[in-house]
Amino acid sequence: KRPMNAFMVWSRGQRRKMALENPKMHNSEISKRLGADWKLLTDAEKRPFIDEAKRLRAVHMKEYPDYK
């Protein structure tokens, strides 16, 4: 299984929150909104998620060195 990218790290928490706030919203609509919201974030706002994704990638490479 591939490590999560920055968007996936960020959206994991946001998806739960949005689903709780909008229980009747379909998952596909939540995904569209999350994508739009992510694009509106500044680089500074994205930085912690980018850093976490880099950390996850490094751990994955160490655990699965032959993964392609």
Rank of each mutant, 00 (worst) to 15 (best):
K1Y: 12
I50M: 08
Y67N: 15
G13S: 12
D66Q: 07
M4Q: 12
R15G: 09
A58Q: 13
M8V: 09
G35D: 15
M4C: 01
P65E: 12
M61K: 14
V9A: 04
Q14D: 08
R12I: 13
L56W: 06
D66L: 09
L40E: 11
K54N: 15
D51W: 01
K54C: 06
R47A: 14
S28C: 10
K54W: 03
R16M: 10
M8W: 07
K1A: 09
K39E: 10
L56G: 06
K62T: 12
K54Q: 13
A53V: 00
A44N: 08
F49L: 01
K24W: 06
K17V: 06
N5F: 01
D43P: 10
L20G: 07
P3Q: 14
L41Y: 01
R55W: 07
N27W: 07
N22Q: 04
N22E: 07
E63A: 09
L20M: 12
H60K: 09
L41R: 00
K39W: 04
F49K: 03
K39M: 07
G13A: 13
K24P: 02
R16V: 11
A53L: 00
K68T: 10
R2K: 12
F49G: 01
M8R: 01
R33L: 07
F7H: 00
K1M: 12
M25L: 10
A6T: 02
E29K: 00
F7G: 00
R47I: 05
A6E: 06
E63D: 12
R16Y: 01
L41F: 07
M18A: 03
I30E: 09
E63N: 06
F49N: 03
I50Y: 13
W38V: 01
I50T: 08
N27A: 14
K68S: 15
M8L: 08
R12L: 14
A44L: 08
I30L: 08
R55C: 06
P48H: 00
R2H: 15
E52Y: 01
S11W: 01
A6F: 01
N27H: 08
Y64V: 15
E45M: 02
N5Q: 04
L41I: 00
A58C: 11
L41E: 05
N5T: 15
K24F: 06
F7P: 00
D66G: 13
E45L: 02
D66R: 07
R55Q: 10
N5M: 02
L40G: 08
L20D: 13
D51V: 07
V9Q: 02
K39H: 05
F49S: 03
E45T: 00
T42P: 11
V59T: 13
I50N: 05
R16S: 12
F7N: 05
D37K: 09
M18P: 01
D51E: 14
M4P: 13
A58F: 05
T42Q: 07
G13L: 13
R33A: 10
A19T: 11
P48K: 04
A44H: 07
A58L: 11
P3V: 08
W10R: 00
V59I: 07
V9F: 02
H60I: 05
D37E: 14
M8F: 03
M8E: 15
D51I: 09
A6W: 01
V9R: 00
W38E: 02
D51M: 09
I30F: 02
R47T: 07
I30P: 01
V59W: 07
K46Q: 04
D43K: 04
A53Q: 03
M61S: 14
N22Y: 08
A19W: 02
D43E: 11
M18F: 09
K24L: 15
M25I: 06
P3M: 04
R33W: 03
V9L: 15
D66P: 09
V59H: 10
W38P: 03
R2N: 14
L40T: 12
E52D: 09
L34M: 08
K1E: 14
N27K: 09
Y67G: 15
A6H: 06
P3T: 10
K39G: 09
N22K: 00
I30W: 03
Y67W: 10
E63R: 08
R47E: 11
I50P: 06
A19R: 07
T42G: 08
K54M: 09
K54G: 05
K1C: 08
A44G: 09
Q14C: 01
D43I: 07
N27L: 09
R57P: 12
F49H: 03
K1W: 08
L20W: 02
M61E: 15
H60N: 14
K46F: 01
M25V: 04
F7T: 01
M18N: 04
D66Y: 06
W38N: 06
M4S: 06
A53H: 12
A58W: 04
I50H: 06
R33G: 03
K39N: 07
M25A: 05
K46N: 05
D66H: 08
K39S: 08
A19E: 15
R12Y: 14
K24S: 12
N5H: 10
K1H: 07
R57M: 11
P65K: 11
L41C: 00
S28R: 06
K39L: 12
D37I: 12
R2T: 14
S11N: 02
